[in-house]
Amino acid sequence: MQDEVFPLRFERAPAAVLTGNARPVLAEVAALAERFAESGAGGAVDLAAMPLSPADVDWLRGTLGRGEVSAVIEAAGASSVEETAFAGVWWVTHRNPLGEVVAELIEVAAVPAIIAAAREDAAAGAARLAAIVAAPAAEALA
């Protein structure tokens, strides 16, 4: 048996520990939330910018809690956007088509940027819609 020949027993201890890096991240989010409430200018914190252990991330998620909104954006892999218990503070996870996390952010905004439709796209959409609206009318006349 493979296992008997070379039994691997990884000590997971370091990963399960809080590094103390989660609090500063939370403080940054709090500062952004305050700024957003005052001026409407939000921002984002990149969770990869700080060495966080899985325990740190769990703590952050737990502390921020869950809010009312969650959405999945299917664009070159699934991205999920979840509101936290604090309105305007969003947990954004970008995944690639293989399901791996490529970026994880805490965004502070009315709506995360990735959700909002762009004006250019909206223009193109409006044109297509107009064409559809125009078409049946023409058919009806014919």
Binding site: G43, A44, V45, D46, A48, A49, I73, A75, A76, G77, S79, H94, V102, A103, L105, E107, A113, I114, A118, E120, D121
Partner: peptide, 25 residues
């Protein structure tokens, strides 16, 4: 390639390049 897919790509790149999150958009 949709605009959102591209925005996501840029966000991931910015994160990997250790740029501030605002650099993505």
């Amino acid at each position: 390639v949709s605009r959102r897919a591209f925005l996501k790509f840029c966000t991931a790149l910015a994160s990997m390049m250790a740029l501030p999150p605002a650099a993505g958009p």
